[in-house]
Design a protein around this nucleic acid. Structure first.
Lengths: 115, 115
DNA sequence: ACTTATACATAAGTGAATTATGCATAAGAC
DNA sequence: GTCTTATGCATAATTCACTTATGTATAAGT
């Protein structure tokens, strides 16, 4: 999932779908490579998505009806744009809330302040 | 790792060592079953550790010199108490800081407030 | 010309977890 | 007094999201 990172790869497990969905919600229609660049930027170079995790996850979300695609040809190059479906928009909210709840629970268990 | 939980099991991946180490730091000498109860309480029943994840992880941390053990017999029952070594105390700090950094990065990527 | 960036895709392997199983004593319910 | 639940440890088999590796191809920079 992560080529290299400041963060332990284990910690990031389970967050990929949430990241993809939320970034697509915030930035609208995007293609895979563009998503990796955006996440890299937003994370301060700390999260570098690998294609091996990215593309299968996008395909899976599409197969589940959470994302829809549109293929664009630029010269001879192909780009596959992804955007949220209405089911996808519901899923983003659920996933983000779930992650926030998880983080709060971790704060309680570890007795740390998170701000 | 988790028998059942409010939180998606995927999210919890990679947090088990951090949880065990921090709970041992905060509460001192504890045995396995006691740790599951404490974590259950601290998490508001949201994190229910399974033995299948708990014991192998404790054994691994002990093998790495992060924990030391003491076996106590109560009647005919055996308890194995774990406590941090000095290496273990260093590790807790590193792990907790790592998790806090990770959470902050997630906050940036997902554009959410965490408090 | 050579290297890096852009852009997609999939197969093989890893490793931390889940699930299942096993053993055994103590306490509580009824 | 037996049956269920709680206490307490341990390990083997399996799962699955990821990493790593590989493949293909065009465009841009040096």
């Amino acid at each position: 999932m992560y080529k290299s990172m400041m963060h332990s790869p284990e910690l990031l497990k389970g967050t990929l779908q949430t990241i993809l969905l939320k970034v697509l919600k915030d930035h609208g229609r995007m293609y895979g490579y563009e998503i990796t660049l955006r996440v890299k930027e937003l994370s301060g170079e700390r999260i570098l998505l690998t294609e091996g995790a990215l593309y299968p996850t996008l395909h899976k979300l599409e197969a589940e009806g959470m994302l829809k695609t549109e293929v664009i040809t630029i010269g001879k190059r192909v780009r596959k744009y992804y955007s949220l479906t209405s089911d996808g928009r519901s899923l983003v909210k659920a996933r983000v809330n779930e992650l926030i709840a998880f983080i709060k629970t971790m704060g309680n268990v570890l007795q740390v302040e998170l701000n």
